[in-house]
Computed example of a mutant assay.
Amino acid sequence: MEATGIPALDTALVWGGALSVLAGVGTVVWRGFRGALHFGRRVNEFMDDWAGEEARPGVPGRPGVMERVGAIEERLQRVEHELYPNSGGSLRDAVDLANERLARLCSDEDERGSDDPPP
């Protein structure tokens, strides 16, 4: 016993406890660092996808999000052009013309007294 009244601690016990605490703190720090690295890689991948990548030897380039959205908008405009009547060049105009002609053909047959029963 020491003069202060506190029993002397075994040095192996002190070092063992200190090493255990340091190992625990080191593990927490390492796991945090590893998680930050993983998160950083994911953010980097997202930014590459967002901005796109230039072509390099053996790897084709990839367009970014804004370029891809622009291409989608152009395609949508071409589709919408075909859905509404305009100067006669759309699919809708062709369908309307075919329906008109079919209606005239059907009314001509009805006036002549066709033997075929109506559909």
Score class of each variant (00 low, 15 high):
14 V>A: 02
75 R>G: 02
101 R>Y: 12
76 L>N: 03
100 E>F: 10
17 G>S: 08
77 Q>S: 07
59 V>E: 10
2 E>P: 04
65 V>H: 12
112 R>D: 08
20 S>E: 13
93 D>K: 00
53 E>Q: 15
89 G>F: 01
25 V>N: 07
50 W>F: 15
83 L>W: 04
42 R>C: 09
49 D>I: 08
35 G>C: 00
117 P>G: 06
105 L>M: 12
112 R>I: 05
116 D>Y: 10
53 E>W: 02
30 W>T: 13
103 A>K: 14
35 G>V: 00
86 N>M: 04
53 E>R: 15
81 H>N: 04
107 S>F: 03
118 P>H: 07
23 A>E: 05
112 R>V: 04
87 S>Q: 11
89 G>W: 01
19 L>N: 13
65 V>N: 03
1 M>Q: 07
37 L>H: 08
1 M>V: 08
73 E>G: 01
8 A>Y: 05
98 A>T: 07
119 P>C: 04
27 T>H: 06
18 A>F: 09
65 V>Y: 12
3 A>L: 12
73 E>R: 14
31 R>D: 07
105 L>K: 04
73 E>I: 11
116 D>K: 14
119 P>R: 13
99 N>P: 02
10 D>L: 00
52 G>T: 06
73 E>S: 03
14 V>M: 03
113 G>D: 02
24 G>N: 04
78 R>L: 06
59 V>G: 03
28 V>N: 08
87 S>G: 15
91 L>C: 03
3 A>Q: 11
79 V>E: 07
28 V>D: 06
